[in-house]
Amino acid sequence: MSLHATTSQTVGPYLHIGLTWLSIEKLALAGVPGERISIEGRILDGDGEPVNDALVEIWQADSRGIYGGKRFRGFGRSATDGDGRFRFQTIKPGRVPGTDGKMQAPHIGVIVFMRGQLKHLVSRVYFPGEPANANDPVLALVPAKRRGTLIAKKRGKAGALEWNVILQGKDETVFFDS
């Protein structure tokens, strides 16, 4: 049997009604092993205006590189505020294998929904100063001058990272066709 996937439609402006009942901005409970990190960022549209009606979902492995572990599910969901800002507190994921069995650099999968998009965006967050980035098979597919858009920046205190979603323009974030 061969069917076609249902056509994607926008979440629209009223997404909060249906989706923010499940808000998960703190992914790691006390006692979950791993390096504590926070990731904060803003979503900006083609005019540089904040996108205040978006929803960001993240999906990541635990510190050992295991997805969907008992103590750490690894799923987060944050709606942007009036300033277009989303935020997560989590742990740095371990490395997971790529398609050829070689290990990928630590990364977090990202999905973004918003009014004005008929289907969601797919991106990834990588970590600054991570030697494994140089050999990551997915980063290698991205034009070198745009790779930086996928790598978070260190901010202030230890473990604090910033990663923005720039929808258009010269600093446009890399989005994937997944």
Binding site: E49, R115, G116, Q117, L167, Q168, E172, D177, S178
Partner: peptide, 13 residues
Amino acid sequence: KRAPTQPLVLLPH
């Protein structure tokens, strides 16, 4: 104002 303008990168699964 919200659609990406750069080509998407094909993501292996």
